[in-house]
Amino acid sequence: MKRIVEVTINGERHELALEPYRSLLDVLRNDVGLTGTKKGCDVGDCGACTVLLDGKPVNSCLVLGVEVGGSEILTIEGLQRGPERLHPLQDAFMRHGAAQCGFCTPGFLMMASALLDENPAPTEEEIRFGIAGNICRCTGYTKIVAAIQAAARDKAEGKA
């Protein structure tokens, strides 16, 4: 039986009729049409589906859609600060070559934005620890770590 769920996604209120056995990931991708959040494993092992649920990074594949009533969700589509204004992390990922195939990128960006919200000046070790649940098969992580460091610096210097 479908349940009605009211939820705020990227600042917009949605009223959704959901089957209880649909993951938040599938709801976002199929019901809401936000396909930026990716499914790399569907079982919590890769982080490609990371979104912020009330500000906290979670694997949306391991959350049921019916559980998020009353919550605020931020996805990659909502990370940008304005039509022409990227989030400093998005800009840093572009400049530093942190996205190759890009399939892992939305998940990394959401995780990294949660990380910087919590710890604006992380060490390299803290960054590596923070993104340990996000798999990238293309980059070897070097450039992702560099991009997160650069974004943190940019934010600190007020550049972004």
Binding site: G44, G47, T50, L53, K56, P57, V58, N59, L62, V63, M111, A114, G130, A132, G133, N134
Partner: peptide, 9 residues
């Protein structure tokens, strides 16, 4: 235990 994302749940 798992990742930060997992531990939040």
């Amino acid at each position: 235990l798992g990742s930060i994302q997992v531990r939040h749940r």
